[in-house]
């Protein structure tokens, strides 16, 4: 047990949360990260779906890594990912139909999410199943972290509320504020603001961690 959670293995989970974050540092999986962050609920569902697909795809490819001929590995990876995504899509349609409608094509686009291909190529093809599983969970959580930060910012400023799965929509800004003339910033709901929020997150992260600055 202690072997399974050694320092080296724990690093696989903690690194992607900060200095090796898939979105802000490795630049993987941007497309879906931006499109589903208008409200918090779809962002959380998306993050969980990606983490699940990533962890299991990592394990499967890692188990197969010695038998896949390198020339056809991309197709094999795509088939494994596509099969897992179909499972996730069917589960969402069965148990969370409204959210799956909101996510529309973005569930399908998990297949071409670069986090998946990137981690499969960079990690699962060269490592044992257990570290690969942890790597998948770690990178999925790093992705989730950014998604939730962006979604919370956009929903608070854009709609004045927070929508959590299972709790429904909660108003955060009291009516008295609106009566005094405060109004929601409609720009935050529009797609371009997601890019600017991520840009600012990158700015803050790099200002704190000078090693990440590009020359």
């Amino acid at each position: 047990m202690s072997e399974m959670f050694s320092k080296k293995n724990l690093k696989l989970i903690t690194n992607p949360l900060g200095e090796d974050n898939p979105i802000t540092v490795q630049v993987l999986g941007i497309c879906s990260a931006l499109a589903v962050t208008v409200k918090v609920e779809p962002a959380i569902v998306m993050a969980i779906s990606v983490t699940a697909v990533l962890a299991f795809a990592n394990v499967i490819i890692s188990l197969l890594r010695n038998t896949i001929p390198s020339r056809i590995r991309i197709i094999v990876q795509l088939v494994v990912i596509a099969a897992l995504v179909i499972l996730v899509d069917q589960i969402l349609k069965a148990y969370a139909y409204d959210v799956s409608k909101q996510l529309s094509v973005f569930v399908g686009l998990i297949i071409t999410n670069c986090i998946l291909m990137g981690r499969l190529e960079a990690f699962a093809l060269g490592n044992k199943p257990w570290p690969s599983f942890l790597d998948g969970i770690g990178n999925g959580s790093g992705y989730a972290l950014i998604l939730v930060i962006v979604a919370v910012t956009r929903e608070i400023f854009g709609s004045g509320s927070i929508t959590l799965p299972g709790f429904g929509e909660m108003k955060l800004i009291p009516q008295a504020f609106y009566d005094m003339g405060y109004s929601n910033n409609g720009l935050m709901i529009l797609p371009p603001m997601a890019l600017i929020v991520v840009g600012i997150i990158i700015w803050v992260q790099r200002a704190r961690n000078k090693e990440l600055i590009e020359s």
Binding site: T24, V27, L187, L190, P191, P192, M193, A194, L195, I196, V198, G199, I200, I202, W203, V204, Q205, R206, A207, L212, I213, E214, S215
Partner: peptide, 22 residues
């Protein structure tokens, strides 16, 4: 600004281009 160089500024410029396209 140094921390914005590369990726950061590209995101922000893309956002501004997006606003223009809107």
């Amino acid at each position: 600004p140094a921390p914005l160089r590369g990726l950061g500024i590209t995101f922000i410029v893309t956002g501004l281009m997006g606003i223009a396209f809107m």
